[in-house]
Simulated assay, not measured.
Amino acid sequence: MTDADTRRETRTGEQVRDYLLAQLNATLRRPGMYGGETALRLFFDAMAFTDDREQAWREEQDSLRERGAFLSTGVRGAFESLWDAGTEDMVASVYAECAHRHGWLHLDRVLPRDEYDGLIGVGETWCEGDRTLGQILGMAGPPSLHCGGTNPYRPKTLVYATEHPRDPLLCLHFWNELLEPSTDRVALYDEPVLLAVRVGGADFADGFTFTPTGTNRRWET
């Protein structure tokens, strides 16, 4: 061992926290790249330990279960109990709610109160017909958080939020299906279509307003 090795300093607690927080936020944005729901839970466990918030995180998980947002198969299972489209971006949006409440979510755009209230108010109206990702972006503007990859054809979730952790997130879930390479088309739709608008914080199933396409994809009850 050299003198340089013995003098090497370990990371500070603040550096470790910054690293974990950056990884958590990267996973919320690209869950498929980092390992999906399992990776999210690991980063949340690590952040809760780092911030001495293990009990608060356990209570958060209990709340998810009580609200029907976490089943034996996780948050993904909660989405799959509603329809056949439980994608990783949808799952990430639920964890984003938890991150926002704990002050761990880095927002790309913070909505002012009047803009947020306006979006909450028109969500149900948007769901009266089928709309594409481009149409919604044209009306709502850039999201506070984009969950999902950069592939323009793949499913995505757009999240809109204020700076206040107790304001529920407005989550817009978009779906598309990639087709076999042998077909002439890349995907079923030219761009993802809106399945539902979800307002966080409520009982899971009660938070959704479905579009016609979203309704058609739901399991029969």
Score class of each variant (00 low, 15 high):
Gln55Phe: 13
Cys98Leu: 15
Thr125Glu: 10
Arg218Gly: 03
Glu115Trp: 07
Gly68Val: 03
Asp117Trp: 02
Ala56Gly: 05
Leu24Cys: 08
Asp52His: 13
Arg131Ser: 11
Glu54Leu: 09
Pro168Tyr: 05
Asp62Asn: 14
Leu188Ser: 06
Pro143Tyr: 05
Ala78Asn: 05
Leu179Asp: 03
Asp18Ser: 09
Glu9Thr: 09
Gly118Glu: 11
Thr150Val: 14
Glu97Trp: 14
Ile120Pro: 04
Leu179Gln: 09
Cys98Ala: 13
Leu40Pro: 05
Trp104Ile: 00
Met139Ser: 14
Tyr160Ala: 01
Ala22Gln: 15
Leu179Pro: 09
Leu64Ser: 07
Ser63Phe: 07
Thr157Ala: 10
Leu145Trp: 00
Asp206Pro: 02
Gly103Arg: 01
Ala99Leu: 06
Leu40Val: 04
Thr2Gln: 08
Arg113Pro: 04
Leu170Cys: 12
Val159Gln: 12
Thr209Asn: 02
Leu158Trp: 02
Val110Thr: 13
Glu191Arg: 15
Ala78Thr: 06
Arg41Gln: 10
Thr2Ala: 14
Arg7Met: 14
Arg166Asp: 06
Glu88Trp: 07
Met90Ile: 01
Asp117Met: 01
Val75Phe: 04
Gln135Pro: 02
Thr125Leu: 14
Ala22Trp: 09
Pro31Asn: 00
Glu220Thr: 06
Gly134Ala: 08
Gly149Ile: 08
Gly214Ile: 11
His146Gln: 10
Leu42Phe: 12
Gly201Leu: 05
Gly74Gln: 09
Val75Met: 13
Ser144Met: 00
Leu169Val: 07
Ala69Val: 03
Ala205Tyr: 10
Trp57Gln: 01
Arg218Tyr: 03
Arg53Tyr: 00
Thr87Pro: 05
Asp3Gly: 04
Gln23Ser: 15
Val193Tyr: 10
Ile120Met: 05
Trp104Glu: 01
Ala56Ser: 10
Thr157Tyr: 10
Val197Met: 13
Asn151Ile: 00
Thr150Tyr: 13
Val110Glu: 12
Cys127His: 02
Asp114Gly: 06
Ser93Leu: 02
Arg53Met: 11
Glu59Arg: 12
Gly134Asn: 07
Ile120Gln: 08
Ala22His: 10
Ala4Trp: 12
Pro181Asn: 12
Thr10Leu: 13
Thr73Ser: 14
Phe210Gln: 05
Ala69Gln: 03
Tyr116His: 05
Pro142His: 10
Arg58Leu: 15
Asp45Glu: 05
Gly35Ile: 13
Met1Ala: 07
Leu172Trp: 12
Asp89Tyr: 02
His100Cys: 08
Arg101Asn: 03
Arg58Asp: 15
Met33Phe: 11
Gly201Val: 03
Met1Arg: 03
Arg166Val: 00
Arg11His: 04
Ala99Ile: 05
Ala69Glu: 00
Arg218Phe: 04
Trp83Phe: 14
Cys147Pro: 13
Ala26Asn: 15
Trp219His: 14
Asp51Glu: 11
Ala48Glu: 06
Glu124Tyr: 06
Arg17Lys: 07
Asp45Cys: 05
Ser93Arg: 09
Val110Asp: 01
Gly200Val: 02
Gly141Ile: 06
Arg113His: 06
Asp108Cys: 07
Gly32Ser: 08
Glu177Asp: 15
Thr183Gln: 11
Leu21His: 07
Asp62Glu: 15
Arg76Pro: 12
Ser81Leu: 11
Tyr160Cys: 00
Phe70Met: 08
Leu71Met: 07
